[in-house]
Simulated assay, not measured.
Amino acid sequence: MLFRERTDVGEAKEMFLAAIKGMERTELLPATSSIGRVLSTSILAPRNVPHYRRSAMDGFAVRSVDLIGASPTNPVMLQIADDVLEGTCAPVNTGDYVPDEADAVLMMEDTISIGDMIEIRAQLHPGKNVGAIGEDVRKNEIIFNKGHLLRPCDIAVLASLGISDVKVYAKPVVAIIPTGNDLLPLPGDDVPPPGKTLDINSLMIGEYVEKWGGIARYCDIVPEDKQLIEDAIRSNLDADMIVVSGGTSVGDKDYVPAVVEKLGKKLVHGVGLSPGKPTALGVADNVPILCMPGYPAAGLVALFAFGKPALKKAGTIPHTPEITIKATLSGKIMSREGYVSYARVILEGDIAHPLMTAGAGILSSIAKSHGFVIIPENVEGHEEGSIVDVVLIE
């Protein structure tokens, strides 16, 4: 397989992302349905939290002035009452309103109960164990900035402020176009005849699109026909991103890169990625187009390397670092010089067992593996016993 040029993975990714405009469409959603969504406006606190002085402990609301001089040798006695007055205290639980007359809360364990009186053997400074108004959140304070990815704990904060609806960016729509004369649609109840394959790539791509925050638009299988491929891409230019599976190599019927060039601009065809070299990247009508190899494992690597960051930028979804762990290799991993190699490994504790590192079509090795060891193009593999970073697939 010969390519006229091979673009560095980092350079290709930079070019691709530079061509992508972030999401502008927004929608109003109930806050409780917005986990994992991205705020399109900043949120200001409509009120203080707490909106009253609250007790931080179980104990007694007191006037600190009544405890001046209290010590083990000179204890102070206070009357338990409903109101806090000179010489009295009121029982409170954590979170309770602290009466205006009180300026401190004495912890239950620091008192000795004697009938309807309590004995106190230590002084207390004003404000002790009392949560001030607005201690958590001040009215008109910026709670979350525009572009914030909402988490469950954030939804709880919104609820505490009485905010029931939030304005978020719409999810990016990703059109998935499978190509190939050998493909058959799912579900495949029968064993495909020799030379035919089930279109598992569309399912795999769509599941990751949904997982990463997008909406998958599944398209019919397109035969290896230049005009039909062009029609399929053209009819999906209303999407926020297009992923074409198959037809990216250099064979006589690998039309996809040429079609992208005709419709817009082909940025890259052929990258230093192993597996995934035949990947092509382009843009048409401001819609980014990822053309990934039809071989499942190669396609998945291309999807991780280019599709995920592109979808995140298209959807204005904040970048989150990949989850990586340190592990010791139980065997040697080879890599191709000049290529960023994604080597699949199985984790057993802190040991990483290399799986098949060649074979772009071996999807089962992805399913069996827990993650990738990503080897830079200037590194000639890793020896047995090396400490490596494993990027978890999930």
Rank of each mutant, 00 (worst) to 15 (best):
L2D: 15
F3V: 04
R6A: 08
K13G: 08
M15N: 10
L17T: 00
L17N: 06
L17S: 00
I20N: 01
L28W: 13
L29E: 15
S34C: 10
V38N: 07
L39H: 15
S42C: 11
R47I: 03
H51I: 00
Y52T: 00
R54E: 13
G59A: 15
V62M: 01
L67E: 06
S71H: 14
P72S: 01
N74V: 01
P75A: 00
V76Y: 03
M77H: 12
L78M: 10
L78V: 07
L78F: 03
Q79N: 11
V84N: 01
T88F: 05
D96H: 08
Y97Q: 10
V98E: 08
D100N: 12
E101K: 13
D103K: 06
A104L: 07
M107D: 02
I112W: 06
S113Y: 15
M117I: 08
M117S: 14
I118L: 05
I120K: 11
L124M: 00
H125Y: 13
P126Q: 05
G131Y: 09
E135P: 02
D136H: 09
V137L: 12
R138W: 15
N140F: 08
I143H: 08
K146W: 04
K146P: 06
G147V: 12
A156C: 10
V157M: 15
V157Y: 11
V168D: 12
K171E: 15
L186T: 05
P187T: 04
V191S: 04
V191H: 03
G195E: 00
L203A: 11
I205G: 04
E207L: 13
Y208D: 12
V209M: 05
E210C: 01
W212L: 07
I221P: 10
D225G: 09
Q227P: 00
Q227S: 14
E230H: 13
I233D: 02
I233M: 09
R234D: 06
L237T: 04
M241A: 14
I242V: 09
V244F: 08
G246S: 03
G247M: 02
G247Q: 09
S249V: 11
K253P: 11
Y255S: 04
Y255M: 02
V260C: 13
V260Q: 05
K262P: 03
L263V: 12
L263Q: 09
L267E: 01
L273M: 03
P275L: 07
G276I: 09
K277R: 06
P278I: 01
L281M: 14
N286E: 14
V287S: 03
V287A: 02
C291W: 12
P293G: 14
G299N: 06
L303W: 12
F304S: 02
F306S: 00
P309F: 10
K312A: 15
I323E: 12
A327Q: 15
S330W: 06
G331H: 12
K332M: 10
I333Y: 11
I333F: 15
S335Q: 08
S341L: 02
V345C: 09
E348W: 05
G349S: 13
A352T: 00
G359M: 13
A360W: 03
G361E: 04
S364V: 08
K368H: 14
G371D: 03
I375Y: 00
P376S: 06
N378A: 07
G381D: 04
G381P: 05
E383T: 13
S386Q: 01
I387V: 11
I387K: 09
I387N: 06
V388L: 06
V388N: 01
V391Q: 15
V391E: 07
V391P: 14
